[in-house]
Design a binder for these strands. Structure first.
Length: 808
RNA sequence: GGGCCCGUGGUCUAGUGGCUAUGACGUUUCCUUGACGUGGAAAAGGUCCCCAGUUCAAAUCUGGGCGGGCCCACCA
């Protein structure tokens, strides 16, 4: 076959991507008897586009899957999208220019379904353009009817276990998104603010209290000082009068008070922060909520009612000043909890929410964390750290629109919870009827449907259940579950990975996977985090356009698993150069192999061929071992180095004289046999990382002689101890050294490498060991003759070899 | 404040006790060699963050410090 001189990256990559899916190269065979290797990857959130972090993480997981496919295992590699929840709503609102609360619920849900479908098609193409190898027949969306059913079923089962409860409880509330959010959805943001020293009256005495949130004065329920604070000891049991509002609150002790901060005395409001929540619960304080769900002041705030929080703060400060109750203001800069999706400062409210009770299972979760094999190992510490720090049960209800409905109705009279029948799922309580005609508790015939939807994590924590057909096909489920591997970023260990373990434990009493591989972040070239505000975001589409998928994967393979990877364009350039080199070396080989049949084996191998075959074994062994522990970067480095420096720079040069010889003799056959074997082995070793170029080369020649229709279905190279010969390796290395030093000599003199040598003098003592290599040395260095004696020039370097070269 | 990770030529990186510290990119010089000029050959370039200790021997182990990252806690 004619092989084109240039490798057309974009055309070739697209061709194979389509072919692989059309030919079912990635198809899972449910009837398989082979060992199944399965992967649970994060279904990307439908938020518009793939980002560079995705590109790295999904490539890295794909390396592993392709390796296992070549190992001969049956690959179960599903693909999913997470397309419900807040992130999706935000995306749709922005894209369509609407606000969910301004339109009928059904209409908004319909819009979301349409928009996500469209965006998913676009995003799927982006992901596939990385050359990843999922079986698209195993695709799912978290808003699918069958996933809704599964998620609701999970809800009902956990309810039946007695682990779900609905409770009026302080919850973390985002006034912008108007929903309860979880602890994990918070992040820190630095704000400049003001410490206001406000006067509270205790009898006729003034008590100065510092606060950044004077608008919460109407919510003040107590004042605290530290039990060891002598300044305030005398106030114990007394009452303080809150300025502007006609309130008297108790003065209490608590060791959580920081004596150094402000005046060492703090007001407790329901609720300003998490400590307030804890004090409210522990000291049995009254509840005085003055902020509404949309972030405005309510009737408790009196004349400030209706104002937004920021407005109320200003107005109250103004009034405090006017009445001389504000004695000082100090500007400060502090960190505040904000909702990670919108950056809005969160509030604490009390509202009825559904929870999964799991704080009692912390020890069990820690035990499961120890059972899971983590790659890299130290990532478990993050999980442990998180589990140990858990303080709230899992709030799974969200006051949103586009999500999976909570399958519950409430008795209009006694508020009894009526759960949907399992047979009736999926269900939407707003549309569907409850499974009973009257309340089993009070007989009332009216029901109120639950309006809330499930937290998206309550569903995406089921990702190993979804493609494994949990509660749909028991036989299939038992075949697939638990999965072999979960891959995800270190940033989501604490929720996605953790929540999945929670659900898996609750339903199945075991770990959802055997191994977890944890990938790092993509950073900008200086090692800083990428962010829109810094303007240092790199888009994978542009990278793919310019360098192609294999080059991008080459870059993604250069980071050790779990390590952050700076985006360096030069690494993409290096990748492209590697592809070109691979292409050209293969072209050269194929040119010489066109009439060669691998079934014809030479009777005797040339020592140079033995040398490279022996060295290749170490590469095979180490590459295999590295892939087994998810260290694809090691494999990449080994193969890259061997291919370039051992195979191209030296081996090909050393066998040219045999390949070009007119005579079809044993020596030439030995070269061809070895060239075929070594190149095919290297192609296979690098195929998981560079699937396109290796497939193209495989089809250009090797497919004629190999059985498989794709290189990705070929068997992974096996280490052969019989081929290892350390003596030959040592002698071959001498030869390489001799050639290198002759090259250096010529280079230093500014001569072409094809300049002939009149005479090459090698050490007499090495004569016997080098005799088999003599023809190779002579041809490769272009020496007219070799003699053995006592060389005077080019003294000993690395291998204790001495030589002398005389130019012609 | 707690936990974990990291600190190697200009840049990125390999290297968990032992030969002259690996490779890539960049820089300089030379070579149009029959796979490849998107190439080849060669050269220059390193206090292995700092200090102390263990050891015959430390980039590597221990302690302390400095700097960076991520997660958690705090955030009146």
């Amino acid at each position: 076959m004619d092989i084109p001189k240039r490798y057309d990256i974009r055309a070739v990559e697209e061709k194979w991507r389509n072919w692989w899916h059309k030919e079912g190269i990635y198809s899972f065979n449910p009837k398989t008897k082979k060992k199944i290797f399965s992967l649970d990857t994060p279904p990307p959130t439908v938020s518009g586009t793939m980002h560079i972090g995705h590109a790295m993480a999904y490539s890295q997981a794909d390396f592993i899957m392709r390796y296992h496919r070549m190992k001969g295992e049956e690959i179960f590699y599903p693909w999913g999208f997470d397309d419900n929840g807040l992130a999706t709503e935000r995306f749709v609102e922005k894209k369509a220019g609407v606000k969910a609360e301004d339109m009928p619920r059904e209409e908004f849900r319909k819009l979301c379904l349409e928009q996500t479908k469209e965006t998913e098609e676009y995003m799927l193409n982006q992901f596939l353009s990385l050359g990843i190898s999922p079986d698209l027949n195993l695709s799912y969306r978290t808003i699918d009817k069958r996933v809704q059913r599964m998620s609701q079923l999970s809800f009902i089962e956990i309810y039946e276990m007695g682990r779900e409860y609905r409770k009026e409880a302080p919850i973390i509330w985002c006034p912008e998104c108007q929903t309860a959010i979880a602890q994990v959805e918070l992040k820190d943001k630095q704000f400049s603010s003001v410490f206001n020293d406000i006067v509270f009256m205790v009898g006729s005495k003034q008590l100065i209290i510092s606060t950044t949130r004077p608008e919460l004065l109407p919510s003040c329920v107590a004042v605290f000082y530290h039990p060891q604070d002598k300044r305030y000891k005398n106030l114990k049991g007394k009452k303080a009068k809150v300025p502007l509002f006609d309130l008297e609150v108790p003065i209490l002790e608590d060791k959580r008070v920081d004596m150094e901060k402000g005046t060492g005395i703090v007001m407790c409001c329901t609720f300003g922060d998490q400590t307030d929540v804890e004090w409210y619960l522990e000291h049995n304080l009254p509840l005085r909520i003055s902020i509404t769900k949309d972030g405005r002041m309510n009737q408790l705030a009196g004349k400030y009612q209706g104002m937004k929080i920021a407005e109320a703060r200003k107005a109250i400060i103004k009034d405090l000043k006017a009445s001389n109750m504000l004695v000082a203001q100090k500007p400060i800069s502090h960190f505040v909890n904000v909702h990670e999706r919108c950056g809005t400062e969160i509030e604490f409210l009390v509202s009825k929410q559904w929870f999964i009770r799991y704080l009692d299972l912390k020890d069990k979760f820690l035990e499961l964390g120890r059972k899971l094999k983590w790659y890299p190992k130290h990532m478990r510490a993050r999980y442990d750290n998180w589990v140990k720090g858990l303080r709230w049960d899992w709030c799974i209800s969200r006051q949103r629109y586009f999500g999976i409905p909570i399958p519950v109705w409430y008795c209009a009279k006694c508020d009894a919870e009526i759960l949907a029948d399992k047979e009736q799922l999926p269900v939407d309580p707003l549309v569907d009827k409850p499974p009973v005609k009257q309340c089993p508790k009070c007989g009332c015939k009216e029901f109120v449907p639950e309006r809330d939807v499930l937290d998206t994590w309550a569903t995406s924590s089921l990702t190993p259940f979804i493609p494994a057909k949990w509660c749909e096909d028991e036989k299939f489920f038992n075949k697939i579950f638990p999965f072999s591997l979960r891959s995800n970023g270190h940033d989501i260990i604490t929720f996605w990975l953790f929540n999945t373990i929670v659900k898996s434990y609750l339903h199945e009493k075991k770990l959802p996977w055997g191994h977890a591989m944890i990938n790092g972040f993509v950073l900008d070239p200086h090692g800083d985090k990428m962010s829109k505000s810094k303007g240092n975001v790199v888009h994978p589409d542009t990278v793919l356009e310019r360098f192609g998928a294999d080059a991008l994967r080459f870059w993604a393979a250069s980071s050790k698993l779990g390590e952050d990877l700076p985006y360096q364009e030069k690494e993409l350039v290096t990748g492209q150069k590697f592809l070109t080199k691979l292409w050209n070396a293969s072209r050269f080989a194929i040119m010489h192999l066109s009439d060669y049949k691998p079934s014809v084996k030479p009777k005797r191998l040339d020592p140079v061929d033995k040398w490279i075959l022996s060295k290749l074994q170490a590469i095979v062994k180490q590459s295999t071992d590295s892939f087994e522990v998810y260290e694809f970067s090691k494999t990449k480095q080994l193969v890259e180095d061997f291919f370039w420096h051992v195979f191209c720079d030296n081996y090909l040069e050393m066998i040219k004289w045999r390949l070009y010889s007119e005579e079809e003799n044993e020596a030439k056959l030995s070269a061809k046999y070895t060239l075929y074997t070594v190149l095919l082995t290297l192609l296979k070793l690098i195929a998981p990382l560079l699937p396109h170029v290796t497939e193209e080369i495989y089809h250009a020649h090797f497919i004629k002689h190999e059985k498989q229709k794709s290189i990705h279905l070929c068997s992974w190279p096996k280490y052969s101890k019989a081929l290892v010969d350390t003596t030959i390796e040592k002698h071959g290395d001498w030869v390489v050294d001799i050639i290198a030093r002759v090259r250096k000599l010529k280079s230093m003199q500014g001569l072409s490498l094809k300049t002939e040598l009149a005479l090459l003098v090698l050490e007499k003592t090495k004569q016997q060991k080098l005799s088999d290599f003599e023809a190779t040395i002579r041809h490769t260095t272009r020496a007219r003759s070799i003699v053995y004696g006592k060389p005077k020039q080019l003294a000993t370097e690395r291998f204790g070899l001495k030589l002398e070269a005389k130019l012609a």
